[in-house]
Amino acid sequence: MSENDKPRAEWPLWEVFVRARAGLDHKHCGSLHAPDAKMAIQLAREVYTRRQEGCSIWVVPSAQITASDPGDKDMLFDPMEDKVYRHPTFYELPEAVNHM
């Protein structure tokens, strides 16, 4: 199955935020690939909390995060809001549900 035969079927990227203990904030700890939100939570539990108990997990599709531009005003290029990664493509929903 060469790259030309089938469209890329990559699981979308999710950012994971974990609250280690009650009273603390959720902290960004990394990302993972999952096909849907439920599995993203399950996998986040397996991957990012194997050594901790009693925590809370948030998962957010990476494509849903908007980040400020770190460029300072002396930069020669105009700063602009952009995605959190330089990731070239994110999971694209079919036209019919693209408003999600």
Binding site: R8, E10, L13, G30, S31, L32, H33, V47, R50, Y85, R86, H87, P88, T89
Partner: peptide
């Protein structure tokens, strides 16, 4: 071994921040 898989995962995630896909 599970930890090692996890480490691979963290590192792929770090690499992906630079504009490449894991696939």
């Amino acid at each position: 071994i599970q930890d090692e898989g996890g480490h691979g995962l963290y590192l792929y995630a770090a690499a992906e921040t630079l504009g490449v896909s894991r696939d």
